[in-house]
Computed example of a mutant assay.
Amino acid sequence: MQIVKLKHPHTQMEFPETATALGFFDGVHRGHQEVILTAKKKANEMQLKSAVMTFFPHPKEVLRKTDKDDVYYLSTIKEKEKQISELGIDYLFIIEFDTAFSELSPQEFVDQYLIGLNINHVVAGFDYSYGRLGKGSMETLPFHSREKISQTTVDKITYEGEKISSTEIRHALLQGDIDKATTYLGRKYVIYGEVVHGEKRGRTIGFPTANIAYHEKVVIPTTGVYAVWLRVDKNWHRGVCNIGYKPTFHDPSNEIPTIEVHLFDFDGNLYDKEVSCSFVARIRGEKKFASVDDLIAQISKDKETARSLFEQDS
Rank of each mutant, 00 (worst) to 15 (best):
K273G: 05
L87A: 04
R132H: 14
G88W: 04
S276I: 01
K188I: 00
K288Q: 15
F56K: 06
I169A: 06
I256T: 13
R132F: 11
A297D: 13
K5S: 09
R187C: 04
V261T: 12
K217L: 09
K163W: 00
C277S: 02
G27V: 06
K42L: 07
A297S: 13
K60F: 02
F126Q: 07
G161E: 13
S166C: 03
A297Y: 07
P9D: 13
L74D: 09
N242E: 11
A306C: 09
H171E: 14
L63T: 05
F207R: 05
D26Q: 04
K80C: 08
A21P: 02
D272M: 06
C277W: 00
A51E: 04
I178W: 03
K163R: 13
L63W: 03
F101H: 03
Q2T: 09
S102K: 03
T182Y: 01
N254C: 08
I89C: 03
V280I: 15
K288G: 13
F24D: 04
K273H: 15
L263V: 12
R203E: 15
E81G: 01
A281M: 03
G244W: 06
R307P: 00
V219S: 10
S278V: 05
E194L: 10
D90K: 03
F249R: 08
D177T: 02
K40C: 08
D265C: 01
K7N: 12
K180N: 05
E304A: 13
G239H: 10
L263S: 12
K135G: 02
V280F: 01
L22K: 00
